[in-house]
Write a protein that binds this DNA or RNA. Structure first.
Lengths: 342, 342
DNA sequence: TTGAAAGCGATACCAA
DNA sequence: TTGGTATCGCTTTCAA
């Protein structure tokens, strides 16, 4: 379009303009070695005149260390992930790291493909994988290439990766205990498919707890459908409508646990539309405590997984590894956040 | 850790192993030129044996075209952005493009810094900037370097960028008309700071429309606070609580427009907690129609900005430019989504 | 401190 | 089709 469009200036041109060698310019730029005062001035001037900006691509091709962080999430649409990533990014940017995000849409195929693409990362790169499927071969390959893999919300592979997870085991007992004290007769579990480890743990935890507190045959009260991973709001709403239409209230659980806040929102809408009230007719407990959960009506009682803490912990695991080369596995607590829906 | 950890194989090693030249391997990999059957087989075998994976960094250093898309958003925590980006990513990945996302946290300083970092992108790279501040110098610099900048939800800089925006002008008239027909006496505008163009347009649009329909002094009913950009839910809730506590209901607007759904949620919580009901005491209209808006109680009446359409349109602008080198400016419609809050 | 020169891992061109 | 080689923009020895 524009005749005046010039190609980007290179370090060579800067050197020429300043009358020094490229090595000196490089030293000046990176502080690798001292540069005399007058040369420094000439170089800086050349940079300004030529409007020079270093090519990060070429730079990191030659450089050995990597300040890139790649984040892989099941899906970008979930506030639980984006909030966590937001805090991580904040810390990372301040330290001069670059953060790249992608989503694999709950597809093991896309996950594998993305993981393979990341194999060409430099040693020292950090890769955060949220949840993820059971096939560990790709992850191990990555680890063998000296790439630091951090399992987020998922247990580490000992000797291969770091991890930051939430303790999914304790809270179910507290919740069931609470529900029992409030005299709820039947407890339903509303859950997405258990292909991901964290969901599996939650389901197992609840089943154990229900048995422990004397609820018979808890497995019979599991409500799940394959389409509940994606489009959680819509699909949980539709599913709950079906449930409410095909059964009488007395036959249904009077308290429900959902394995995600989004699932809970879908259920709540269905319950409202059918003219029931929460928590009088049905009590609801969610999972994650995304921010919006405190703003719906009634406000959602849920299991808090502190996303700011999560993000900061991930960052600390990364910096620690970059300093010492050691993997870390950290377990974060979950808390019950009591609000109006139960 | 592991003694067996080898350095990554390079194209040279593959060539050596297969007994061909690097050029031929490159041709085989990229289909740049035909490769004879037996050599192809030998190369593929070498690749398998050596576990070779091309270095994308080195590749794009040398290559002229770029398949990278960078997305810059005000903040990652807003579903409006993430939903749009999700659809874009879906299309982009299928075409072999890589998508990189970052957020500037509603800070013009961080925005500038990120934009500068992107200056080292190759010509042909696409950069999508959502909203953004008024300083156009960085963007123009980018454009001069043959980088394709797409202004998202913001008007193009003619001759410099493409753009995809929503028509913020028509819908306010429809809404005010509707409100007037329903006999609302006073209309309040609840808005974040107008530093971003889209918000400014919405505010101006509403003011015009209110005047047009005979509401006197609409400026007097603007409720805004600087902290409403960040932490929208919390801050709008706190602000609305203050408003409700410091005035009698009769003195306040009986219908409210919010410039974002998140703002509306915060208001709704405050209204509920003060014992008022929606829409009887106060009617609420939001903006964006993020998915959750259809699931709160009451369901939020809002201005739909179709995020799937938005994402797909952005993608089409990118592919079109890469084919023809032409900038495009596309305007998308907004629609009123009638639900229960008004 | 400084400059010259040797790579990093790939692609692109040219001659064969 | 092939192979050889210059090159992309930068960092990193190494000798001066």
């Amino acid at each position: 379009m524009d005749k005046s469009t010039k190609k980007r200036a290179t370090i060579t041109q800067v050197a020429k303009h300043a009358g020094v060698s490229v090595g000196t310019v490089s030293n000046y730029l990176n502080g690798t070695a001292g540069v005399s005062h007058d040369r420094a001035a000439r170089i800086q001037q050349a940079i300004d005149v030529l409007d020079y900006i270093p090519d990060t691509l070429a730079s990191s091709l030659r450089r050995k260390d990597s300040t890139a962080i790649h984040v892989l999430t099941p899906h970008l649409d979930s506030a639980f992930y984006t909030n966590t990533i937001s805090t991580l990014m904040h810390d990372a940017y301040e330290a001069g790291y670059t953060v790249h995000i992608s989503g694999y849409e709950y597809s093991s195929e896309i996950e594998r493909q993305q993981l393979r693409a990341l194999e060409s990362s430099k040693p020292g790169t950090s890769i955060i994988i949220f949840n993820g499927f059971d096939d560990l071969t790709e992850i191990k390959r990555l680890a063998k290439k000296q790439i630091h893999v951090i399992m987020a919300d998922r247990r580490e592979i000992p000797g291969y990766t770091s991890s930051v997870i939430f303790d999914n085991r304790r809270v179910p007992f507290e919740i069931i205990c609470l529900l029992k004290n409030r005299n709820y007769k039947r407890i339903g579990l509303f859950t997405e498919p258990t292909k991901l480890q964290n969901i599996r743990e939650r389901v197992e935890g609840f089943l154990e707890a229900m048995k422990y507190f004397g609820y018979p045959d808890p497995e019979k009260n599991i409500y799940s459908r394959p389409d509940l991973s994606l489009d959680k709001l819509k699909n949980s709403y539709l599913y709950m409508m079906e449930i409410l239409e095909s059964s009488k209230r007395e036959e249904l659980p009077d308290a429900w646990l959902a394995t995600s806040d989004y699932l809970a929102f879908g259920m709540m809408r269905a319950i409202n539309e059918k003219g029931y009230s929460i928590p009088e007719d049905f009590a609801i407990v969610g999972y994650d405590n995304i921010e919006i959960s405190g703003y719906v009506n009634p406000r959602l009682t849920t299991v808090e997984q502190d996303q700011k803490l999560f993000g900061r912990t991930l960052w600390s695991v990364i910096t620690e590894y970059n300093k010492t080369g050691k993997y870390q596995s950290i377990e974060l607590p979950q808390k019950i956040k009591m609000r109006g829906s139960c």
